[in-house]
Simulated assay, not measured.
Amino acid sequence: MPASERIPAERLTLPLELLAHGELTVRGRIREASNAVLFCTVAQDGATADCVYKPVAGERPLWDFPEGNLARREVAAYEISEALGWRLIPPTVLRDGPYGDGMVQLWIEPDPEARLLALVDGDEAGDGWKAVGPAEVGDGRTALLVHADDTRLRRLAVLDAVINNGDRKGGHLLPAAGGRLYGIDHGVTFHVEDKLRTLLWGWAGEPLTAEALDALEGLRAALAEGGELAERLGRLLTPAEVEAVRARVAGLRAGGVHPEPSGEWPPIPWPPV
């Protein structure tokens, strides 16, 4: 293999090894992000991949989350995604980098033709879509915000309920080549209080699928005290946060339905996209 040959994400067989131990080179900054987000390449043994590096030192303090903790939450979200078996989050590691410890995640190039969100006139979502709610579109007008009635999005809605995602925006959905869907930006997660804010409310109150219930049962077993997943999460989250994950999994399994907005917290993040 020629030196420094870039390997597409879908062909990487050991992305975690490359992300964790490869040489990290900063190429630029993604300026739209509220925290420091750096576009990088990572190279090892002739293989090179694009990635995102979010140093802890570049995190903007949040009043309701511990300072310097968002990177660990991103890695914890990846661990939960893997345990569910759905692989909805790109490979993600915690490591040292040019600006200190931070989260490093494989870069995913989105499919520009995929449509997961839309604004429609009227009060009905239409075939193949699920309603989220009204959205302002300017000049005092509103339209109905809808998301695709898509199995991949439904899995992501379950994952968000487990990790208590407080910031599932449209821009955090990455449909990729080959029919894959990834979610990114999971720093605002795992709070012990209900913080769920998402665009994926289309299944609220509906029964969970048999697939979701099976995945949650597997996750429940993996979260048992003394298990490998519980130990890894214990290095990333507080004991109370790990216990809150167990409680949310148990609640979802017992209730058997997708969660609904609590009414105590804005249900949709701002800006939504």
Rank of each mutant, 00 (worst) to 15 (best):
H21R: 15
H21F: 14
E23S: 09
E23R: 12
L24P: 00
T25A: 13
G28V: 09
R29G: 03
I30E: 07
I30W: 04
I30F: 11
I30Y: 07
I30V: 13
E32L: 12
A33R: 11
S34L: 06
S34D: 01
A36R: 08
A36Q: 10
V37G: 00
V37Q: 01
L38K: 01
C40A: 06
C40E: 02
A43H: 04
T48K: 06
D50T: 03
V52L: 12
Y53L: 04
Y53R: 02
K54L: 10
P55E: 05
E59Y: 02
E59K: 05
E59H: 04
E59R: 05
R60N: 10
L62M: 12
F65S: 06
P66M: 14
P66C: 14
E67T: 14
G68T: 09
N69G: 15
N69E: 15
N69T: 15
L70V: 08
A71F: 08
A71V: 09
R73V: 15
V75Y: 02
A76N: 06
A77G: 03
Y78K: 11
Y78M: 11
Y78R: 12
I80S: 09
I80L: 15
S81V: 11
A83R: 04
L84H: 02
L84V: 10
W86C: 13
W86M: 13
R87N: 14
L88D: 05
P90Q: 08
L94H: 08
L94Y: 12
D96S: 14
G97R: 06
G97M: 09
G97P: 04
P98N: 09
P98Y: 10
P98M: 10
G100L: 09
D101G: 13
D101A: 15
G102P: 03
G102E: 07
M103K: 03
M103H: 00
Q105M: 14
L106R: 01
